[in-house]
Design a protein around this nucleic acid. Structure first.
Lengths: 344, 344
DNA sequence: CTGTTAGCGCATTCAT
DNA sequence: ATGAATGCGCTAACAG
């Protein structure tokens, strides 16, 4: 049925014996068309296999129904989920997605990406690129006089843009409080790279709770990992050597937790009896670590969906100072308690 | 600098005192412009912060420079990597990506997606959606008279379309041959869901090698898992019960391998001495399992890049029967040998 | 080397 | 309820 060569609105109009406007009205479900002609046109549309040219619609109407998404690190479980969440919600709201992936911070490339998206007439942008603390103001500047709204993911705040984020600090608090509740005393932390906002926040949460529990001078309890299992291994060894009476570790992601568990097993240290462990992320495998891992679950998909919702609201309103960056845009993570932190 | 309201090619032309055509030539780097005016126009473009409207360019030129990508299961490590590979290569070749994600097979939705992409005037499509063996012909039919080329990922073949795939069968062979070489005798397999093409192929590879080694009547050595760690656990128990002298398992992904290892550890079965294990995927954590996992590495990014390359060639040529579906489109996986399959 | 004329496919005024 | 004219921003084909 579907004809190879593109059939235009004019072809349909001609075949139906009406004007192109009438066809336009029908395909856009506008009123002001008699039921009879509407049906007639619909039939012709079907027969000819006509589908409106979105490009032309966009140019003519000034609306692209497309949002630009700048992603990063899909190999991280969280990032992949965020993108999934974005796609689902965007789809639901009738937006198409123009995707760009970044791998590292590079101002020039960032600017090119932005320009590229704008040139494509996207109606808004979701920036889920890398959130390095030292590049945040750069991004703020870059996006300052954008012609379309932009939602930034995973960072504290921006004075110019909407921000949506996982509440990593609370996540860090949850993990640490739980370890204290379980009776652990000397709680170390293996963080992610200090340049990552997420790492900083989780660390801050840990620090808060440590302080609240009367610990000061705790810098020797901190090891900076790189998110990978191997660094969990290293971190555990380093902390163990530096702090003999260490009895628990908040490991800032599940991969590194695996490294810790692996090493603990090897040196016959029993988790959770000798060492309590809490991870972060709740990757699907974490319930199959030995022992199963207590961890902080991030609802990454929800975060992605929230970003789209927020963006959509901005797209609706005129963007002249209509934005309120209310603090409601935090998604709170949740502690999943398993064996690795609960003594028998 | 950048003005809020959109500046068009006409604004630039006016400001530069030339025709829009000349501006067009400059921004498209065409010849036939004197160096002097070229520079002059470029300057104005910079001053005005002009960026050509891609939508208008597309409509006018008939080329969108966009490809549609239909993805699936980004939470699987391989899928995420494939998408990354696609994005990189597409970017390199100057294509933008219109992304759609699917979660399950749904003919109606599939057709909508295709229509949607076509309506967006994509120049080609990469179908990295779910590859269920029983839906392949449906997809073939669906895509039969598409107006643009499409590349299908992860399936055996198609009589109408180009196919690019990981050579899962060879992967299965590699794993099984290795276990035989290591002296294991009774090699079971925990597969993925039988409806998945990947699962079927890996199983076929295993079956081939088993047969070559003189084993017949091997159906009791097969357990169908669901890719998740939990099913590795179940599978191991089931195989162990059914086949007392089982001494190795080819587990068709790393997550399920983790389940097996976990259970083996629990019942004090030593890997690799009592039980050899080979996984599939080489997720980053697999080298941190205990013991580190021998596994079949998929170069998923390469696969994604290959898909784009193939598509690009089709986009270049006229697509009237110009396609050769030569068998070169297989990416061969690679065995990564670690501790779990090598006896001391 | 440069400008003019036309038109991509559609939606948005206005008419009627 | 329907149609005619006009233009979105740009490029193609020609002219000079």
């Amino acid at each position: 049925m579907t004809n190879k060569s593109k059939v235009t609105i004019r072809d349909v109009a001609k075949a139906a014996g009406v004007s192109t406007q009438t066809v336009s009205r029908v395909i856009n479900n506008r009123p002001d068309v008699s039921p009879a002609t509407r049906e007639h046109v619909k039939k012709i549309v079907g027969d000819l296999g006509y589908a409106p040219n979105t490009i032309a619609q966009s140019l003519s109407s000034g609306r692209s129904n497309t949002i630009g998404v700048v992603g990063f690190g899909l190999e991280y479980f969280g990032s992949a989920r965020v993108l999934t969440g974005i796609e689902r919600k965007a789809n639901e709201l009738g937006f198409s997605i123009l995707l760009t992936l970044l791998d590292q911070f590079d101002r020039q490339k960032n600017e090119r990406v932005l320009t590229h998206l704008i040139a494509h007439q996207v109606e808004g942008i979701i920036w889920a690129g890398p959130a390095f603390t030292d590049t945040m103001d750069v991004i703020d500047k870059m996006t300052k006089n954008l012609t379309v709204p932009i939602v930034l993911l995973n960072r504290n705040s921006s004075n110019t843009n909407i921000v949506v984020a996982m509440d990593n600090r609370t996540g860090g608090r949850l993990a640490t409080e739980h370890l204290f509740e379980q009776g652990y005393q000397k709680i170390g932390i293996i963080t992610g790279p200090a340049s990552w906002w997420e790492a900083k926040e989780r660390l801050a949460g840990w620090r808060e709770v440590m302080t609240e529990n009367g610990y000061s001078d705790i810098d020797n309890l901190v090891f900076e990992g790189n998110w990978e299992a191997e660094s969990g291994d290293r971190g555990f060894k380093a902390l163990n050597a530096a702090v003999p009476d260490l009895d628990a570790i908040f490991v800032c992601n599940d991969q590194m937790s695996l490294g810790v568990l692996q090493t603990a097993n090897r040196i016959d240290l029993t988790v959770p009896d000798d060492l309590g462990i809490v991870g972060f992320d709740d990757i699907p495998e974490s319930s199959y670590f030995s022992p199963p891992l207590t961890t902080v679950r991030q609802e990454a998909r929800k975060l992605g969906a929230l970003a789209v919702t927020q963006l959509n609201e901005c797209i609706g309103t005129e963007l002249d100072e209509e934005r309120d960056k209310s603090g409601e845009n935090l998604v709170t993570p949740k502690l999943i308690i398993r064996k690795s932190s609960v003594r028998n």
